[in-house]
Design a protein around this nucleic acid. Sequence first.
DNA 1: GTTAGGG
DNA 2: CCCTAAC
Length: 463
Amino acid sequence: MLGKVGQKCKMQSALDSLQYSSKTPNASASIFRQEPEQVVGGASDYFASEEEAIGVEHLLAEPEYDDIVDTLLDLKTCTFSVPESYFKDFSALESVDHDALPTTLTEVDETREKLLDGFSNGYDENYCSISCEDYLLDIEVEEETPTLHDVDISYIEDVNLENQLAGSDGKNCGIDVLKLSDARNSSDYDSLLLDNRNCLQFDDMSSDKLLEVFRKMFGHQTSVTDKQWLKHHITFGLQNQDMKCSLVSSEIEGAKVLPPESREELLKASTAFASVFNFRKKPRVQHVKRREHIQWNSFKCLSEAQVDSSGILSDQSNDNTTSEDDWTIGTETPGTNQNRKHNYWSTPEVLKLVDGVSKYGVGRWTDIKRLYFQSSAHRSPPDLKDKWRNLLRASRQCLKSRRGVAAKQNHGWSSIPHHVLNRVQELAVIYPYPRKRRARVLPTVFVASSSTESDNRCFSLNA
DNA sequence: GTTAGGG
DNA sequence: CCCTAAC
């Protein structure tokens, strides 16, 4: 059933949320999965939240909705334009790049003319012209986004209609609705009347009934009590199904189908309806998708290294002086990461560096390199030094405030365990870095600085 | 040749 | 990670 598919999507998204929020031993993995979740947020459900529904309430309520449909829908060109006023409320909810779609409300005919002219005259900044192809592409890209094509109208069976459909093979599509309407039985859904435009009327239905229908149709409850909103939501959900199923099942006997000449236009209309319902989701979903893609690509190397090396190297890092050459993969995967200069430090490498510093102290990078990074050709002594410098900075911020650490982890970098950073801080106390370096200074300054420096050195030596 | 430090 | 001055 279509509705069950929708519910499955909802459940899946809920499971994903649990997965994202659950703490896993692998810190890096959870870190990298938190970012997309935070970005996606409530975008996975179709009008799942009341705020979202209310946000588009004005769009679906009379008379604006009829206005937007009649004004914007162009069946012939399969395009529709969106006046800027319809975007304003959405821009408050999300910062979508609407700058590319500046529009002003004008007459319908003029709009259509401009739209048609736009194909030859180029872009007209006064109008927003979006071809339905764009949205079809978006719908294909965003697989788990429920659309109005997924609505469940099986509630008709659930409410125990007396007139069960003869010959119905379980398909829950608009044809069933049409048949039901023709049957004209006296159930609670007598008010489901079809007019000449294949529109269902819910005027006589109580709010509770509307809510129930909505729940069964969309798979979730809504706290929106506005009758108009519910009515139109259900109506257009059914209408969408109606048009689709009428097209695909026009050969079924007894089905109320439309004239063949209008089928093509109906298909366009159905698509356009879906586009109307989906247009506000499109930019955000695409944005999320791109960000997620980038996120996983940029951290792929690090996360793989983390997974591979998790739990292997703890305290006996002194032993593996020759066996760990493959912790970094920057050079091993030149095909996937072309011309990548940065070799991210894995946690085992950091641990080796910490051990080296604890053994030799700060500054003897060649010795550390000789003992701990003999097999790592790409880790030069200056690299060790640079990394230690970064570790110091990270550990300082770690101890400075836990908020800073949390922020860093949310940003995906600094996957170094806290105990390692604490160890770095301990070593930083023992082996101060940067070491005071005899700067090339003017003689006057040199005297002053050298005196204090020597004093400090004597003090430290005596102590 | 090695290291510190800036870029 | 690179460069360069300082060591």
